[in-house]
Design a protein around this nucleic acid. Structure first.
Lengths: 342, 342
DNA sequence: TTGTACGCGTTATCAA
DNA sequence: TTGATAACGCGTACAA
């Protein structure tokens, strides 16, 4: 009932207190905490007991200040929250990352911000909050990454847009080959008027999947004009699909650059009474949960999103451990998964 | 090309360096950085210039160690990643939280972990990484919160399960009243055999929404046996719906405790050829994007999820600022949104 | 194997 | 208004 009681929290125990409790020096306690081999077993036992008794947990700020490392890494996502939460692709990547990190002592800091990535986020990063960074979903305009790389090890998910120096570390799939396999399937089942809903053309994944689309159609001697751009969201894809059908009402197949966008496209097709796959066959990209959660299972280009997250984290951890043998790029395989939509 | 170059990153500038650059003492630079009013304007200018020149950013560990605060708060979610990313409810809450935090100097640390919330997460929290914590989606078994509260200010999203002391701070809606409004609507439109798919019964939101369901039916003199429990996931709800329809094939209405679960239920109903709302009217809960993204718009109990996140963050920030006037609970309003499903 | 002593980069308390 | 100087809690040479 007394006001002010709220802030009357007991101070956390310190190394000093544990040392006193165990009757040794701070240094010895520190050694025990950090698992140094050169401590007498009996001392380890008594110190450990003291730690338990006091419920001691090392202070991270002090530890980080002294050791010059934080034992945590950041995942930087230059998108807004709704996009981040809306696309199952991100969920899969994050899962893979945390899975790898859970095997280590590192913790993850999620930095989702399109609004002002260069200021608040960069400040946070440069303030020594993390030892390294993972960057996914970056766009051509995101030049903050250059600054970042001069500060700490960085691993990209997806080929960086500024990969000129080829000194970047990244995990990716061959988006061109992936989309080619999907579009080729549409050709193989006899479709001749094929359209596409692309991702943003300021992102490698958007560009490359469009390139694959064009390449297949050119090889097959088909028209490549049925193209509409979207933004990797369901609503954006829905609008793009409407535009495309208005401009090219005769298409008999559609390659959509992500599962999430395909849900939007399929919604419009259903609304307009175009039967899938009979009237229009649809191939998507990702093989995320979105591919199977709708009324009609999507034929889609499967990429190992979760494994990519895992690989990114693994790469970064090895970088942080000064592993000299890590390869700069890790290109993972895609495969076409056949379901109902095509 | 030289190996080892990777780690040749320039050291971050320190207060000391800025002081030398500006020709003043560390203390003065510190004052400028922290916006102290008692520094000569001309000195402020020259120090600021030096800071710019050196691209200085204060080291957080050192600052945190000295000031005994971190300027960051945690959002603790005792669920696994898939659940967290799968439910739009969480997205909305996180959005609200970040929105409030963006107006402040605090940053957010997301801690999502059902696997081992008491060990790694609690350790992280107790290591002084954050000044306060937000807890959402907590279950009866989550007794780690007691420890947490003895360490730092905590604000809950949803009435805490151990709210005996009534000393907790939380933001919530009246789940009983909310669900009552939804179920009453089903009664009002003439439905007489009403079932429900509940949330987990170890969570207040699950329990209370079930209580509201029972209360309305009892008031109306209707049977309350058509109840199946689920876990706030689409697939869990789908399975529960199948069980319910097998046991009570005669139901003409269904109250589902969340929008996400309703997507699962609606899928099963469609699959089984039960027309909605004609054969079975459906009322859901949340009014998240999931309520309008499917083929049939959901009639649902709307709760201000984003605003709740905002309010939680606001409450915590005021607690951290030693605001004595903050109320312990903030109960926000719900409203029934009528769409096609009922 | 253990303890002493210094340094990590800031904040905060004094004097000046 | 400014500048020494002592914390803050921990890691780690170095010495014992």
């Amino acid at each position: 009932m007394t006001s002010g009681v709220r802030n009357a929290r007991p101070p956390q125990p310190t190394l000093e207190m544990v040392a006193a409790e165990a009757g040794v020096s701070r240094a010895t306690v520190s050694r025990v905490v950090n698992g140094s081999p050169k401590v007498r077993p009996e001392v380890v036992v008594s110190v450990t007991a003291a730690i338990e008794r006091l419920n001691y947990v090392p202070n991270r700020a002090a530890r980080s200040l002294a050791s010059r490392q934080t034992q945590s890494v950041a995942l930087v996502v230059p998108e807004d929250m709704t996009k981040f939460f809306g696309d199952p692709y991100f969920a899969a990547v994050v899962q893979g990352i945390t899975q790898r990190l859970d095997e280590s002592d590192y913790t993850l800091n999620l930095l989702v911000a399109s609004t002002d990535p260069r200021h608040k986020t960069m400040r946070y990063l440069r303030a020594g909050n993390v030892d390294g960074a993972l960057v996914i979903s970056h766009h051509t305009g995101d030049n903050f990454v250059a600054d970042l790389e001069s500060t700490m090890p960085v691993v990209f998910g997806g080929r960086p847009t500024n990969d000129s120096g080829a000194n970047n570390y990244f995990v990716d799939v061959d988006n061109i080959a992936g989309s080619m396999s999907g579009v080729q399937h549409l050709v193989d089942i006899g479709r001749r008027r094929i359209g596409t809903i692309t991702g943003p053309v300021d992102m490698p994944a958007g560009i490359d999947r469009l390139t694959g689309f064009r390449r297949v159609l050119e090889n097959a001697g088909l028209a490549t004009d049925a193209v509409e751009h979207a933004d990797f969201t369901a609503s954006g894809a829905a609008a793009a699909t409407r535009r495309l059908l208005e401009r090219c009402p005769d298409i008999d197949a559609l390659f959509v650059a992500s599962d999430l966008m395909a849900t939007g496209a399929l919604g419009v097709l259903a609304e307009l009474g175009r039967a899938v796959p009979r009237d229009i066959a649809v191939v998507a990209y990702d093989d995320s949960p979105a591919a199977t959660s709708g009324p009609i299972g999507m034929t889609t280009v499967s990429q190992p999103s979760k494994e990519m997250g895992f690989a990114m984290a693994d790469l970064l951890l090895r970088l942080l451990a000064d592993d000299e043998t890590v390869p700069h790029r890790n290109i993972m395989p895609t495969s076409l998964v056949l379901r109902e939509s095509a």
